[in-house]
Design a protein around this nucleic acid. Structure first.
Lengths: 336, 336
DNA sequence: TTGTAGGCGTTATCAT
DNA sequence: ATGATAACGCCTACAA
């Protein structure tokens, strides 16, 4: 039960009085080795509890059969779904998954990338943190030739592989749903203006309103820093308007949780005085007495699956991945 | 942007017309190397974008600076909290985390252990799946000398390191809370009888009732297989009783979500006709109109932290870990 | 202060 | 069918 080192091929060879190469070949079922020898080797290997030293093999093959996954935080169902899918795909390819949560912290993101690089992962799947602006690691990785595929929260750059959800389709459906139900005072509670995700929501929101012939009231577009306080403040500023909106598209379901709670405190009746639709389609709404009118599904599993496939294509050096891949899934409104 | 291999120490040596060992030492700031040489080496290394090949180092050191974490599923907040803590501790020790979700599947658990062993992780943190009975990997790991520390859902074996939550304290508090509020018809909706977790809940439930002088009505102890249907069935069987209980301890918050929904459908008014307390203390209750009376916190972060510490002690070969460590945190009722 | 040589475990190449 | 040798990149005892 103490420091007895693992058996090596050499030891087997010595015991059998044959050469290490023969042992190696026998163990790998090489055709040129006789069945007798193979059997003898296998038997002894079994007895001595031989286990190939993968670190040696990785080293020699210049491959680790490991991919790194970097995402903001696993406590968001979107990402815990995604990682499950990634794991499944990886498992099929006999790969193992190295995990890193950035917690939306740019510095951590960089550290994780560095650490993954150190560990010589064969590839990286990454969803950016909410505030990430700096893309230095792209250079770092380009130098090291480690393929990287972004998903969900992707950088606004050409020449990188990315898989994400098209927020506009869901937005259009949301606005449609609101208008069809007679709403014309529709607001947007958006995330921080710096985020690409926010810019997109904003853009699609305005586009959708215009397309349906509604005027865009800038008072109806407010921002939250995504903290509980920020969410409440955003809601408050909407409620303070003389002409309060009757429908709200919110950044995501987490924000909406706070909005609904705040609204209730203020005596605003859900789905009567005010209607909500947000992004994410988290599974918890079915347990709520006052769920939002709908939520926009962004398909974490599909995104993760596709991103993982592209990554493995890169790793396996398929031709198709010479150019940067860009895969976009439409988002979809799900009524509650 | 193509197959130019990473710089090696040899190449730097050649370029500088000095020996590889000198380069190695210079790079590692060895005291015997002159400052001039160090500077020259560092400069060239920088220029040539030298990166030490960790796989070579791992191979040589017989260490990977990697720990494997195996847990049932990250979609449970308990585990996503736990993994965050583990990552933090690992990061401090310059370790990276390999992830494996067992999805409560024993075969997967074994595969993951095998895969981790292949990757020569320096240690493993593991929380068992709900149905795991087979502990073969313990032998596997013992042979390989890979330390393993269990947390939360731990095996009922001696001689293994384990960190878990004492369910009895929370149960006692729950029963106390119910009784103090005048309840004496108290039921338990338990998980599958096969689970250790269920056996414990059952045992502590009965013990707590007896301790407070209440009779134990076996009709008041029902089981669910933890599916939505199972949860509803369990609730149904309680509601069907002539003498319906007014208070229920349930297996966990997920079960309680279904119970509450079912109860509401049946016109049972929460916290009036019926009161609930369950294990987990998930963060979502604050958003619910009808939260349970309370929930029992099991401190994922503390458990994970402690387990990780023990694991690193094992890895660092501290004396203290020669005997199997067993750390128990009391669970605690949190009223809503 | 620096260089030389050997080895970590495995496998591929070239012999025999 | 099997063996000897070299090499992957790095480190380090020993030598100079």
């Amino acid at each position: 039960m103490s420091g007895n080192k693992p058996t090596t091929i050499k030891e087997i060879a010595r015991k059998l009085k044959i050469s290490p190469s023969t042992v190696s070949r026998a163990l790998n079922d090489h055709p040129s080795i006789g069945d007798v020898t193979k059997d003898r080797v296998r038997k002894i290997a079994e007895e001595m509890a031989y286990e190939p030293n993968q670190t040696a093999i990785f080293f020699k093959q210049r491959k680790t059969f490991t991919i790194g996954v970097i995402l903001p935080k696993l406590s968001e169902p979107f990402f815990s779904d995604a990682i499950s899918t990634i794991e499944t795909v990886a498992e099929e390819k006999k790969y193992t998954v190295l995990l890193g949560q950035s917690l939306d912290n740019e510095q951590r993101e960089l550290n994780i990338v560095q650490s993954f690089k150190k560990h010589r992962v064969d590839g990286i799947l990454m969803s950016l943190g909410k505030n990430t602006a700096n893309m230095d690691y792209l250079d770092i990785l380009a130098k090291t030739e480690i393929p990287i595929v972004f998903f969900d929260c992707v950088p606004d750059l050409p020449n990188v592989h990315k898989v994400y959800s098209d927020l506009s389709t869901g937005m259009m459906e949301a606005i449609d749903a609101f208008i069809d139900r007679g709403h014309h005072k529709i607001a947007l509670i958006n995330g921080p203006e710096s985020l690409l995700a926010s810019k997109q929501r904003s853009e699609y929101f305005i586009k959708a309103l215009k397309q349906r012939g509604l005027a865009v009231d800038t008072n109806y577009i407010v921002h939250t820093d995504l903290t509980e306080q920020g969410n409440e403040d955003a809601m408050e500023s909407l409620c303070a308007l003389a002409d309060r909106p009757s429908a709200v598209v919110s950044f995501n379901d987490f924000v909406t949780l706070d909005l609904i709670r705040y609204a209730k405190q203020r005596g605003i009746v859900m789905n009567q005085d005010m209607y909500f639709i947000s992004y994410a389609n988290y599974p918890l709404w079915k347990y709520m007495d006052n769920p939002p009118m709908g939520s926009i599904e962004q398909y974490p599993d599909q995104q993760a699956q596709r991103a993982a496939e592209i990554l493995f294509d890169c790793i396996d050096k398929k031709e198709a991945v010479e150019q940067a891949q860009e895969v976009i899934f439409p988002s979809k409104l799900v009524l509650k």
